[in-house]
C-alpha cells in the first residue's frame, strides 16, 4: 500500500516535470523563432540564398521574351541596374567582357533596368556597346518579386534554378568572373 503510494507520487512528480519542460520549451521555441524572424527581416525579406529564384518574364530591348524558367540547366546572372547608379555604370563593361566569354559555356546575363525610358536605356546600351540582353521592368514587378532595395543588386541563379548568391554593390571584373564560374553548368 505504502509502496503503491510512493510509486504514484514519483509518477506525479515525473508528470509535472514533463509538463513544465514541455510548456517552457514551447515558449522558448516561440520566442527564439520570433527573434530569428526579426533579426533576419532586415536583410532581403523574402529571398535567401538557396531559395528557388522567382520565375518572371521580361521582354528585352530587341523584343525577345526572357523567361527565367526557360534557362533551367544554365546559369543566369541577373543584374538590376539604373543609368543613374554609378557603380552599375562602372561594372557594365566588365560584365560585357565576361558575358562574351561565358555565354557559350551556358551562363546568361540579363540586365534588368528599373522602370526607365526606352531612350535612356537604349542610348546607354549603345554608348557601352553592350551585347547582353537588357530588359526594362516597367511596373517594378520583378524588382518587387526579388525585393531589390539598393542598386546594383546581382542575383546569381544556378542551373537548378536556385539562388546561388545575392550581391549588392559594385563588382570587380574578378568578382564577376568568379560568380560566373559558380553558376556555370557542369
Amino acid at each position: 500500500m505504502a509502496e503503491d503510494k510512493k510509486a504514484k507520487k514519483t509518477n506525479r512528480k515525473r508528470n509535472r516535470a514533463f509538463m513544465r519542460l514541455a510548456i517552457l520549451s514551447m515558449l522558448v521555441l516561440a520566442i527564439g523563432y520570433t527573434i530569428y524572424n526579426s533579426v533576419t527581416a532586415d536583410d532581403v525579406e523574402v529571398l535567401k540564398v538557396g531559395d528557388k529564384a522567382p520565375d518572371f518574364a521580361l521582354e528585352d530591348m530587341e523584343g525577345n521574351r526572357h523567361k527565367l524558367s526557360d534557362y533551367k540547366g544554365e546559369g543566369v546572372f541577373l543584374n538590376f541596374w539604373g543609368t543613374w547608379c554609378e557603380p552599375c555604370v562602372k561594372e557594365m563593361p566588365a560584365m560585357d567582357r565576361q558575358y562574351k566569354e561565358y555565354e557559350e559555356q551556358g551562363v546568361h546575363i540579363l540586365a534588368v533596368n528599373i522602370a526607365q525610358s526606352d531612350f535612356e536605356v537604349q542610348s546607354f546600351a549603345d554608348r557601352f556597346d553592350l551585347s547582353f540582353p537588357i530588359a526594362i521592368d516597367r511596373s517594378k514587378s520583378v524588382m518587387t518579386a526579388y525585393n531589390i532595395r539598393p542598386l546594383p543588386t546581382t542575383v546569381l541563379v544556378n542551373p537548378e534554378g536556385d539562388i546561388q548568391r545575392i550581391v549588392t554593390g559594385e563588382m570587380s571584373e574578378q568578382d564577376i568572373k568568379g560568380f560566373m564560374e559558380e553558376i556555370k553548368p557542369q
Binding site: L24, L27, A30, I31, T34, I35, S38, V39, A41, D42
Partner: peptide
C-alpha cells in the same frame, strides 16, 4: 525589433 527587447517580452509571456 531588437532581440533583447523581444526576449524580455517573451520572458514576460513565460
Amino acid at each position: 525589433s531588437s532581440a533583447w527587447f523581444i526576449l524580455l517580452v517573451g520572458m514576460l509571456a513565460i
